[in-house]
């Protein structure tokens, strides 16, 4: 039995995904089933176990703060769906 009731609309808003009602119903059912399966992890004894974020040791990497070759403005804007006055265009955000 599912102990989850994933609030699919809230999660979809967090993820910035518009869902149709059909999609919401389908994903809700599928993800509830997947999350039930994830609960198998709770049977593990994880007391005192450190979390792993990377399989091999990684450390912070810094580089010299200097000039490097980079895209020209044209190159950076080349794939923009909309471009206005050499800038990315977005819908109006300030009234």
């Amino acid at each position: 039995m599912s102990t989850h009731a994933i609030d699919i609309h809230r999660v979809a808003t967090l993820a910035r995904l518009e869902l149709t009602e059909d999609e919401a119903t389908r994903y809700q059912q599928q993800l509830d089933r997947v999350l039930d399966y994830m609960d198998t992890l709770r049977s593990l004894d994880l007391e005192g176990v450190e979390p792993t974020s990377h399989a091999l040791p990684v450390c912070d990497v810094v580089r010299a703060d200097g000039d490097r070759p980079s895209f020209t403005q044209d190159e950076a804007l080349a794939n923009a769906p909309r471009r206005v006055m050499d800038q990315f265009q977005i819908p109006k955000v300030i009234e």
Binding site: L35, M38, L41, R42, L46, V49, E50, P51, T52
Partner: peptide
Amino acid sequence: YYLTAQKARTL
């Protein structure tokens, strides 16, 4: 979920 899975990854 996330932290639990990271610990399981250690195991």
